[in-house]
């Protein structure tokens, strides 16, 4: 068990990069990277669920929406300060995840994909229907609310004056780093081993005395809680939520992010999160492509996913090497 030294180095380098970045980048990039942090957390959650317990979710944007709306409603109608809404959003989404995990037990792979896909498509219409809670199509604006830390101007921490964008960046990535450590620890523990055993063979896992139902439901809960926190941070970063902030595309992009980050490995999650935000810029580098229009970027998102899936054996091997340390997946 005394092997994870290189990973510690990687983690330390990663933390260093995250700390240095806002000092060298523009304010605009800083706030963009804060959003990357929120995606990063959601992808971590998706990695736990789909990568490790083998339950596919095409609707993780829905759990993000639960978190985001929890934060927005608490901040705008109940006078709760934004920071305190984050754990509440995680708990609410996590609770719903636990509940959703029970019927999910009855759905095998394809059908779970179908059901979660349906939930992600239907969600915006439901958010619009219950407009007395959610503000309907107009959404809820949070900027300048008294519950916003720093009131959109900036925050002073330890004698350092941070601009509002720097504050959001620091907040998001501090939480992201903490949640990364938690995921690392969870997946390295009995919990993670049990999930992988279930993913690779439910029957063998049951025979070895792993309680499948408990672990699969728990994976749903943990994963949803991560998405909930991600949603809360998303709401705080953007200071606005509306049903259209959570289209089916968001859920699908999270999946793309998880796949790009070498499926099932939390180490690649940052890569996936970066891709979600910066693919438009990368696509813009191609000649004769107008990225002001949404089409090309979307096309390349899909194309990346298709190509990665065609290279699937390779992706899985790297993912397995990164996450499992010697446990191999039967092909």
């Amino acid at each position: 068990m005394r092997r994870p030294q290189p990973k510690l180095t990687v983690f330390a380098v990663g933390v260093l990069v995250v700390i240095v970045l806002p000092f060298v980048l523009s304010e605009f990039r800083t706030v963009q990277l804060a959003t990357v942090g929120a995606y990063f957390i959601a992808i971590l959650g998706l990695d736990v669920l789909t990568g490790h317990s083998g339950q596919i979710s095409l609707g993780h944007g829905a759990f993000m929406a639960v978190g985001a709306y929890t934060t927005a409603i608490l901040m705008s109608s109940h006078g709760v300060r934004d920071l305190w809404t984050i754990p509440i959003a995680g708990a609410v989404a996590g609770g719903i995840g636990l509940v959703a995990g029970v019927p999910a037990l009855r759905l095998s792979g394809l059908y779970l994909a179908l059901a979660t896909f349906g939930i992600a498509i239907v969600l915006p219409t439901i958010l619009k229907k219950f407009d007395h809670f959610t503000g309907g199509s107009t959404g809820l604006a949070l900027f300048g609310k008294p519950t916003q830390t720093g009131h959109g101007i900036g925050v002073k921490i330890l004698g350092q004056q941070l601009s509002n964008n720097q504050w959001l960046y620091a907040l998001t990535w501090t939480i992201a780093a903490a949640l990364f450590l938690v995921a690392w620890w969870l997946l390295d523990s009995r919990f993670g081993r049990s999930l992988r055993a279930i993913r690779d063979s439910e029957l063998a896992a049951a025979a070895a005395g792993v309680n499948r139902s408990t672990y699969k439901i728990a994976a749903f809960g943990v994963s949803a809680a991560y998405a909930g926190v991600a949603g809360a941070l998303f709401a705080i970063n953007v200071a606005y939520v509306s049903p259209d902030s959570f289209p089916i595309q968001l859920s699908l992009y999270l999946l793309v992010g998880a796949v790009v980050g070498f499926f099932g490995s939390i180490w690649g999650a940052a890569l996936g999160a970066l891709l979600i935000l910066f693919l438009p810029d990368i696509v813009g580098l191609l000649p004769h492509v107008d990225t002001k229009q949404a089409g090309p970027t979307t096309f390349f998102f899909g194309a990346v996913l298709v190509v990665l899936m065609l290279l699937l054996p390779l992706v899985l091997r790297v993912g397995t090497a990164l996450s499992n340390r010697g446990y191999s997946r039967p092909q």
Binding site: L58, Q249, L252, L255, V256, Q293, A294, G295, P296, T297, T298, F299, F300, F301, G302, A303, V304, L305, V306, L308, M309
Partner: peptide
Amino acid sequence: IGLLIAINGLTTW
């Protein structure tokens, strides 16, 4: 899913 996203992007493009 990748095909879904790619074709959607293509038609928009």
